[in-house]
């Protein structure tokens, strides 16, 4: 039943005779020849094209990565620039609005002030004119009154009547003047 097993154990005892550890020159020679041939063939036809392709791919990948990084940095820079520009523009606009408002305010107040001044001036002038006119009128009235008085006195003297009659005359004249204004 187990003759093979038995034979195996039997042979195991004789196994020491199997020369496993003494190298054979011929096989070593063939190993070198086969290996060196394989090395030449493989490095020329297999590893060279494969590694070249891989290196080319690695290079292109690296380039793509570098380009992407460069592009991103560029984009970031441009974005920052734009942002700064936007900020400047906004500040400028804000400033312009504020300026405009201030200018308008100033203009308004100026105009108001000017108008007020002008009004005042006009008022003043009118007042002055009125005053002047008044003074003139009074002066003219006085002159007129004097003229009238002189004319009245002249009439009085002309008639040379009694004093009572003169007085009455003058008074009645003056009274007519006062009542009737210019007569």
């Amino acid at each position: 039943m187990s003759f093979l097993f038995l034979s195996l154990t039997a042979v195991a005892a004789e196994e020491t005779r199997a020369d496993l550890l003494s190298p054979s020159g011929g096989l070593m020679f063939w190993t070198i020849v086969i290996f060196v041939l394989l090395l030449i063939v493989l490095s020329r036809f297999a590893f060279k094209p494969m590694l070249a392709a891989v290196e080319a791919r690695e290079r292109s990948l690296q380039e793509a990565i570098d380009a992407a990084r460069r592009d991103r940095e560029e984009a970031e820079r441009v974005l920052a620039e734009h942002r700064a520009q936007l900020e400047t523009a906004r500040a400028e606009a804000q400033k312009m609005i504020a300026d405009g408002r201030a200018t308008a305010e100033k203009l308004r107040s100026d105009l108001l002030e000017q108008t007020k001044t002008q009004q005042q001036e006009m008022l003043e002038r009118a007042r002055r004119d009125i005053e002047t006119e008044k003074t003139n009128a009074i002066a003219a009235l006085r002159r007129e009154a004097v003229d009238l008085a002189i004319a009245g006195a002249g009439k009085v003297i002309e008639r040379n009547l009694d004093s009572d009659a003169n007085r009455k005359l003058v008074e009645s004249f003056l009274g007519s003047v006062t009542l009737g204004g210019k007569a």
Binding site: L38, V41, L42, F47, P49, A53
Partner: peptide
Amino acid sequence: AASLAAIVLIGTARAHT
């Protein structure tokens, strides 16, 4: 073994290219 390695690797390198 060397022939198999050569055939497989060179064939693959061709396909790779």
